[in-house]
Each structure stands twice: as structure tokens, then as C-alpha cells.
Design a protein around this nucleic acid. Structure first.
Lengths: 326, 326
DNA sequence: GTGAAAGCGCTAACAC
DNA sequence: GTGTTAGCGCTTTCAC
């Protein structure tokens, strides 16, 4: 491992001088700079960022906690977070919480131990207290972590309303919402609220079906099948696109024509869905804007831990009309 | 930031003793241990892993370089790598190379600067020399990085052969392969070889269509459309599942019935495809085994930088029969 | 069984 | 414009 003193020795200067050259700091003669650069080249020198950060400098490491990048939505979001952070000189430590309390706790500890500059979290199985005691800049995506942690999300309420309106306008009368388990305080529950309020305004009864987000696809399909049989809806708002795909598949097995017998609206509108299932009517979250905002806020907090931020930031969603609605 | 000396002070012992307790090292009285643990609890102490690694200890950091986790295949693979590595006490620095030479180079530099213990790479745009001079344990997935870097991949040749046989057995006579750009030395090119050899054995002519893997989906769809019009194949082997989806879609637009007029076989067989497109006949790569093996080999290299490893490790693939073949 | 002191690779006063 | 020195938080000889 080649170190700063090796460079100094080769260039015939002190360690300080090399450090100054690396950090472009203080006043240096061009001649010295050249000598040092040459030595760095020759030795293929890379400053040890561990040693550097030990002085209390930033580590330029950001912890990114999401359920799993195997889910296309999180895959796309994490991918965008990574590229934007890279562009700003930060590196990502990837933490897939897998909805596992112990793992999430261990990751939080680990991120502290690794002195990350901040955390972006879109998963939570832990109590608020545990997030508060972390004492690091944190910004959350779509989750209520604590009162002091800002939440970025798409405008879930409007999204739910838009989806429901689309179904109503297309003539659906018996509209079911299929969602994950709705936690009372969770931002995503607002999709349900938007749905319910819109239906009520049209004098229709909300019908709620909840299937845990992490249920295996085949089990989920079974439950969806039963839902279609039991409820015989003519419109379903699925709060994620993958469930919508499953539902369409089950509907076809039951001989239901889409959108004639049954209309479907999804939620998320990832690139994957837009590219490979353009037929699906869905609510598109502005993933890129979400990534950009999450990072923007986090970097503000990193720069100034006490900067005042809003408790909530809601980004506008968009209805994408496909062929699963009329 | 609470540090080791704070714990020492509170416990009324020396820093050395605390260090010994943390590392469970040397001989300590139970009484001392208890005192120290209590102090650690009370202060919610987390050893600073930067300081620790500065002594030359492992950082327990692994760099993971892939094109992008927004691609479901890489998303699933990275997700598995992450969970297996976590279970072994390692953390993942996520590097999405985005098929960008400069970014990949910068990432390599950065990983060195951050003193990662090793690298798993499934992307390459750089010359072999650059990978060789990294001087860190590296294991590659599906790419020829250098002679000294072991490659893990699925059995691409057999995969190509299996896919082609499936089409042949189902009666296809004009079988096209649709792949990315085939680099002469790349392991994935063996899918083409398996295809070509199988066709030749049946006295049929290989017909090759190459579309760069990173082409945007809509452009790719256009090219596929043209391919179907120009060649009028009755069987296509797509070397990735997403392209197969696109092809099926374009075929339907052209009024081609599947599998009657046209049969299709994909490649990858991710969980996503199995769950949401079980109709697709495809070659399944053993993603979990790939992840496990990559990690196993890497950890061997980390433990002993000079351990002898094979140049190639090929994991068996499996044909999954769907309804896109007869 | 425990502590003092040196040092990991680097940066930052403070000198000159 | 450049060097000397101390120190970041931790581990590790070497003592006792």
C-alpha cells in the first residue's frame, strides 16, 4: 500500500506539502506541485480515505436503506440515488432491510460505526426512538420515521383520487382498492384516503382489500383470485403495479375481459412498467424527482445539521392512460 | 461522538482494556468485562470502524460493480449478494457503472481509496490492465476482466443449446438469435455458440441479430419489429427475458400468434419473470448459486490473496417450459 | 489481569 | 512557500 509519505519521499518534500497538493490548499509553487503530481502518478497513489475521514472530515458515504433492490421500483429509485450521489462525490452503502427488524437495527448500528455522512431510508420496522437516537442526518421516503425526520413522497392522496376518478369516469360502479397493509400513520395510507373520499363524493361505497406487500407472488395471486370471485368488482385500484399485473392475469384466467368486464389502475409507473406494460393504466410517481429531492434535502442537513426543513414534501403524480381502463 | 476513551473513563479502566473487551482478546476478569459492557450500553457506544481499519484491519467493505440495479436481473443478483454478504458481516458499496468507462474507472479508484476488502464486478468497459493494477481481490460475473480474475457465470453454452433445442423440438425451422453485441471473448457470447452449434447439427443456418443491450426499450422494439418483418422467423431465442417480452409484444402487433406462428425462448429466468410472466419459456440462471459462489470465491481470495482459483466457474442452467413454445 | 506508549495514514495549527 | 509537530480513535507491542 503506497502512502502519502512515500510520495513525499519520492518528490523530495514533506508530507504536509503532499497533503496540500492533494487538497489544493495553501500556497504552493508550481514547481513543487508538478514534482508531487509526478510522484503520485509514478506510484499510482490513492489517498487513504479512512485516514482522511478520521480527522473528522466527511466520509462521503451515504447509507441507503430500502426493503430490496430486487423490487423494480426500489431498484430504479436506488439506481437513481446512486447516480446522483456519485455525481456529487458520494458513495452508497446499500442496505436491503428485507423488512427485517433485526437487520434494520444492525444496519443502523453499522452505518454509525462506518461514520456515514447521512442516511436515506425507505423502510421501517423499528420504533421511532431508534431512529431518533441515531443522531445522523436522515431523510425518509414514504415512511414516518420520527417527527424530526423529513418525509419525501409522491402526492399519495391525489394519486389515489386520480386513480379512482379514472375508474369512475370510465363507468366503473363497484370499485375495489387493493393495497398493502395500511398503517395508520403511513404516507402510503393516503392513497386509500384519496380513493375513499373520491368514491364517497360519488356516493359509492369503498371496498378495501389488504394484502401484505411482501407476500410471495403466488400467494398474492391466490388471494386476488378469491377477491375477484367474492367481490366481482368492475374496477380495481391496485396501489402498486406488480399487484395490478397479477390481478390482470387472474382476471384473464376467470375469463374476464379487460377493460370491458373489469378495469384496472396501478400505481408507481416505473420505467420497467412503462416499457414492458404500456397497456397498464397507472399513476406515475416522479422517481427521478424523488431521488433528486431526497438527496438535496439530505445534503442540506449534512451541511447544517440544524437546517429547518419541512416535515413533508409531496411531489406531484401523473395519470398514465393505458388500455386497462376505458 | 462517543469514543473508546469515554467508555474507558466511565468504566474506570484504560483504553486498552476496553479495546480488549470489544475484541474479546487477551485475559480479562469477568468483573472488568461487566463494567465495560455496562459503560458501553450506557453511552450507546459504537466503535469507529474507520479508526479500526486504519491499523490495517479489514474494512469489511465490498465493492459491487454492475451496470445498474434498475435492471431486474442485476437488481435480484445485487440483492442476493447484499444479503449473503451481510450475513457474513460485510457491507456493500454499490457501484452502478452505467456502462460508462469514466464512471467505472472513478469507482475503481474510489474503492481503492476506501480500502474495500474486495470487489465483485459484472460490468466492464475498461482495459484489462486497469483491472490488474487494482491489486485487490476481484471476482467477475460473466465478464472477462483479466487472466488473473476468476469468472463466475451460468453455463452459457448449454443455455444457448437448450434454448435452441427447445425451439427445434417444437418444430421451428427458421430460428433467429437475438442478442446483445457479441464481444469475441465474452462469456455471454457462448450463448451464441451453443445456439449456432445446435442449429448446424440440425442442418439449419444460424441467423444472428444483435442489438446493444443498453438500447432504450422503444428503440429496441422498433428494431425487433423490423427483424420480424424482414426475417419472418418461426422461432426466436432472445438472450435476455426483457427483450423476449418486447419481441412477443411486437409479434402480437403484427398479428402473429404465439406459439403457433412464432415461438420464443428467453434467458435469465429471474424471480420477476417467473412470477409475472410464467408464460415465457426461458433459460433460468441460478442467481442464488451465482451470488453464493461469487462471495465464496471472493472471501477465499480475501483470506489468502494468492489462493489458487480456477479461471472459470460455470453453474448449470435450467429450461423452464412456458407457453411461448409448443 | 491490566496499563503506558507508540503508531496506523493523514490533516492542521503553528512556526519560520 | 514549506516543514515540524501533534493528534484523529483505535489496536498492539511491551511492560508490570
Amino acid at each position: 500500500m503506497v502512502k502519502l509519505t512515500d510520495v513525499a519521499k519520492l518528490a523530495g518534500v514533506s508530507a504536509t506539502t503532499v497533503s496540500r497538493v492533494i487538497n489544493n490548499y495553501g500556497s504552493l509553487s508550481q514547481h513543487t506541485k508538478d514534482k508531487v503530481f509526478a510522484a503520485m502518478q509514478e506510484l499510482n497513489y490513492q489517498p487513504n480515505s479512512l485516514a482522511r475521514s478520521l480527522q473528522g472530515k466527511e466520509t462521503k458515504l451515504i447509507g441507503v436503506i430500502f426493503p430490496s433492490v430486487s423490487n423494480p421500483f426500489f431498484g430504479e429509485l436506488v439506481s437513481l440515488l446512486e447516480s446522483h450521489l456519485f455525481a456529487k462525490g458520494y458513495k452508497v452503502i446499500l442496505c436491503n432491510s428485507a423488512e427485517n427488524k433485526e437487520k434494520e437495527r444492525a444496519y443502523l448500528q453499522m452505518l454509525i460505526a462506518n461514520q456515514v455522512d447521512g442516511i436515506i431510508a425507505g423502510a421501517h420496522n423499528l420504533g421511532i426512538a431508534e431512529y431518533e437516537r441515531v443522531g445522523l442526518p436522515i431523510i425518509s421516503f414514504d415512511r414516518a420515521l420520527s417527527n424530526t425526520i423529513p418525509i419525501v413522497s409522491s402526492d399519495n392522496y391525489t394519486g389515489g383520487a386520480l386513480a379512482t376518478e379514472a375508474l369512475l369516469k370510465a363507468g366503473a360502479k363497484k370499485i375495489v382498492i387493493l393495497s398493502g397493509i395500511n398503517q395508520p400513520n403511513s404516507p402510503t395510507t393516503e392513497r386509500l384516503n384519496g380513493y375513499a373520499d373520491t368514491l364517497k363524493a360519488a356516493d359509492l361505497q369503498p371496498i378495501t382489500a389488504e394484502i401484505d406487500f411482501h407476500t410471495a407472488a403466488n400467494i398474492k395471486a391466490l388471494k386476488i383470485h378469491q377477491l375477484l370471485v367474492d367481490q366481482k368488482p368492475d374496477g380495481v385500484f391496485c396501489t402498486d403495479d406488480l399487484s395490478a399485473l397479477l390481478l390482470i392475469n387472474e382476471a384473464q384466467k376467470l375469463g374476464l375481459a379487460i377493460p370491458t368486464d373489469l378495469q384496472v389502475v396501478g400505481y408507481d409507473g416505473t420505467k420497467l412498467i412503462q416499457d414492458y406494460h404500456p397497456e397498464l393504466t397507472t399513476i406515475m410517481q416522479p422517481i427521478d424527482d424523488i431521488a433528486t429531492l431526497l438527496i438535496d434535502l439530505l445534503l442540506q442537513r449534512i451541511k447544517d445539521h440544524h437546517v429547518a426543513l419541512q416535515p413533508r414534501y409531496q411531489l406531484p403524480v401523473k395519470l398514465i392512460n393505458g388500455q386497462t381502463t376505458r
